[in-house]
Design a protein around this nucleic acid. Sequence first.
DNA 1: GACGGTATGGGCAACGTTATTCATCTCATC
DNA 2: GATGAGATGAATAACGTTGCCCATACCGTC
Lengths: 345, 345
Amino acid sequence: MVARDRRRVTITDVARHAQVSTTAVSKVVRNAYGVSEAMRVKVQAAIDELGYRPHHAARAMRGRTFTIGVLLPHIRNPFFADILDGLTEEISASGYQAIMVQSGGQDPAAERRAGDALVDRQVDGILWVAPCCAKAQLEQLARDTPTVVLGRHDRSAVYDCVLDDDEVGAELVVEHLIALGHRRIGHITQKDDLPGRAAALLQTIRARTYERVMTEHGLAAHIAVAATSYSEEGGYEGARQLLARDPRPTAIFAGADGAAFGALAAVHEAGLTVPGDVSVAGYDNARMSGLAHIALTSVDQDGAVMGKTAGRLLLERIDGRTSAVRFSVTPTLVTRRSTAPPSRS
Amino acid sequence: MVARDRRRVTITDVARHAQVSTTAVSKVVRNAYGVSEAMRVKVQAAIDELGYRPHHAARAMRGRTFTIGVLLPHIRNPFFADILDGLTEEISASGYQAIMVQSGGQDPAAERRAGDALVDRQVDGILWVAPCCAKAQLEQLARDTPTVVLGRHDRSAVYDCVLDDDEVGAELVVEHLIALGHRRIGHITQKDDLPGRAAALLQTIRARTYERVMTEHGLAAHIAVAATSYSEEGGYEGARQLLARDPRPTAIFAGADGAAFGALAAVHEAGLTVPGDVSVAGYDNARMSGLAHIALTSVDQDGAVMGKTAGRLLLERIDGRTSAVRFSVTPTLVTRRSTAPPSRS
DNA sequence: GACGGTATGGGCAACGTTATTCATCTCATC
DNA sequence: GATGAGATGAATAACGTTGCCCATACCGTC
């Protein structure tokens, strides 16, 4: 329609075209107070005719960017996809756009750079998934930018928390294995070199709960933890460590599905069968886990609900709420063929 | 250190502190021409002391944002993680930051919104992974913003292309299955409702190549294509359709690993075994495919190299290159236990 | 010592938007 | 008809940065 000249259409063009002031156009665009219906219609027509879109950077210099920043350790973890779907669903109606940045997992320096990148881009709010930095850093961020932290157990007065009850989840798995008759149950956890903040990390909760439940059942002597990482490689390596013990465990509880997949590979490679020789259970109930060929017993936490909630909390905070909210989902156990009673060996 | 007052540190603060002009500071920050070593040191000291970080939005209003936008259909596909890793590695040294936006797969309207979101945020370049929109739309975008398209086979004079040679890849799979002795080989593809642009889509190339190779081997009568989607659900449904045929195929070539996983589940559910009753092969060689429990024969395309190359091409384009480049990786076949000669039934 | 070239630093005007302040107009009330 | 309140629209001044242009300092050469 319009002659597509090189220069972009600005609010001034719209104002001139509609024969009103730029202020009036701005008000219409922002749905601000003090515009008559006639004005609104006239301006809107000019906007449509010229194909005007507000200049994002110019807006950012004055205030809102209508952008939510999402900080993910990495996008390989399929559980994050659920979270993002939930978030997107919640915020899209309100005109916000989510942008993602990878923080790179366990390197605090890289994580900080990624966080700064979002702050620099003046996002209106940040959803920080499974941060590994110190709580103080989170709080400093949260003082300037509305923040929701997903998957950590610290309590804060300045940011909101969304998490699953990892204590319940881990307990479900260990109780399930014990009920099946297992006594030598190993655990694969993620080891972070982050002095002082371990207690808040979900991997710590899962590992401690494993130890607690084992102890409560008089199985303290059988506690065996391989501290590697919540990845396929970590699970593979962890399982090898556990299987090398004598006597070897009859069940392995991996703290995450990815690690469980690696454990499955290690068990298989050792010439053992699942669940005949070794039962394996995971955590997160990734879609892959449900596949017939894997059939991994796992803990389901509703990622979509967590993402949706995180989005809602962020919008509320952007809207002015200052009190802190803590939202916890209760996980459930999904039993599949990878766990069974131990053989009588 | 510095009194952390509410206002952010601006270039003016730095200039005042170093007792130079804002212009000088700007030049130092940008590594621009015309700064003496002494000036550089003095200004840098002031920058460090005050903890100055350039205001992104203000920069954006003048020009560069040092941001690369990445448009992904969705982050669930693990292959995209490889691409992103490669991209990040390439661009991080040059001070660029990648931000990701989900385009939402097969909905052109959502995809357009996602693209606009990046354009609005004035990214310096866009890596568009597997777009489903019309070529004209890509070209219009590319005329304003340096663009690299990954995973489509159109040729364009205004954007660069990074792709794997899907014809070679698909041929490898089908030839492999035929060499094993299979004749009734089914294919699962993705059906898009995008009139006129199908020929450029990778799923079309893979499907057409399947048909071509089958025909070349005199197996045209055994061609059987299930047009669902490149997802787990799609693979499951597609495999069910194929297995319902009489006689049923002895091998299934799924156009993507995700679909292959779904196919494995469907085969299993039908009471059949892999590869005893049905061989299954995929495409992408996702990490999961290598797991001992899955052991899926698949086509490996080096995602990290593709991402790295895309990053390099983008930087070159941002730097002023206007000629179009086309980079194609040659895929290889990784054979695993999911494919074997057909039984004599 | 006058001159020209080069290297370096500074002043200023945008970029497009919006919050604030101000001017006008309408209408009801006394 | 004077007054005041409320509604509406416009003018203006930032926000922080950088591109352009000019001023100055320094150097070597004739």
